[in-house]
């Protein structure tokens, strides 16, 4: 395993590359912390701990809201599963690039498969050629920064939330972040179709139970783009496959 020993420049590159994507997550974490502090029905420490146990803000927010409403365990866990099921698709999309690492390494990398992590792995062309060792430490550097910034932001929100008025609308940073990731991920016409279909279905399906409209939007968006790409004959890998 020594060929995968710590590589400082890769780690630093990972931190630096993900930093601009981690910054907009901080206000969201902060707002989440404020909500935790305000919601006196919930134990604050356990709610804060949920930010590293779940490590996915939208699902965490949904879970805490439902718990404050006295929802059943089944409803909470099903909701979290549906909101986070997009990670299974990230997982499928990245597995080819991670398949050469040991099981133990992949167990750790899976934990840090955060939205922004997926975004840089999908959009940074620099990551396609470097060595296995470089990509591992780049991934862990990015994951470490996202992990630390997120948990610190939530903690700051829990502790000092009263100083920031709600009228600042800090939570608007969340749609701005994901809108930005969307723009960065658009590279061809089928990708735009994926976005339009995904967004339309997610908007129309907003009232579906447990946030399943999100999952439905992603699945149908990917399916529509995949179908279109096949029809257009973008099948350059056909021979290999």
């Amino acid at each position: 395993m020594s060929e995968l020993s710590f590589q400082r420049d890769a780690f630093v590159d990972g931190v630096r590359r993900v930093f601009p994507l981690a910054v907009p997550g901080a206000p969201f974490g902060f707002v989440l912390g404020v909500l935790i502090a305000e919601e006196e029905l919930l134990p604050s420490f356990a709610s804060w701990a949920s930010s590293w146990i779940i490590l996915a803000g939208a699902a965490q927010l949904a879970a805490l809201t439902l718990l404050a409403d006295n929802a059943s365990a089944l409803v909470v866990i099903t909701t979290v599963f549906l909101i986070n099921s997009r990670h299974a698709m990230y997982s499928a999309a990245l597995r080819g690039r991670l398949s050469e690492y040991s099981i133990a390494t992949r167990v750790l990398m899976s934990y840090l498969l955060i939205d922004q992590q997926f975004a840089i792995n999908e959009t940074a062309p620099e990551l396609e050629s470097p060595t296995l060792r470089y990509r591992l430490w780049h991934y862990l550097g990015a994951g470490a920064l996202l992990f630390v910034m997120w948990n610190v932001a939530v903690a700051l929100g829990v502790i000092g939330g009263n100083w920031v008025p709600e009228s600042w609308g800090l939570s608007f940073a969340v749609p701005l972040l994901f809108g930005g990731l969307l723009v960065l991920s658009l590279r061809d016409f089928p990708g735009m179709v994926a976005a339009v279909v995904g967004a339309t279905v997610a908007v129309l399906g907003r009232t579906l139970p447990q946030g399943s409209g999100l999952l439905l939007g992603i699945v149908l968006g990917v399916a529509a783009a995949g179908f279109l790409a096949e029809r257009r004959g973008d099948t350059d890998q056909e021979v290999v496959a």
Partner: peptide, 10 residues
């Protein structure tokens, strides 16, 4: 196409 579909749906 998982990336554009997910980020748009979110």
């Amino acid at each position: 196409y998982v990336a554009p579909a997910s980020f748009a749906a979110i």
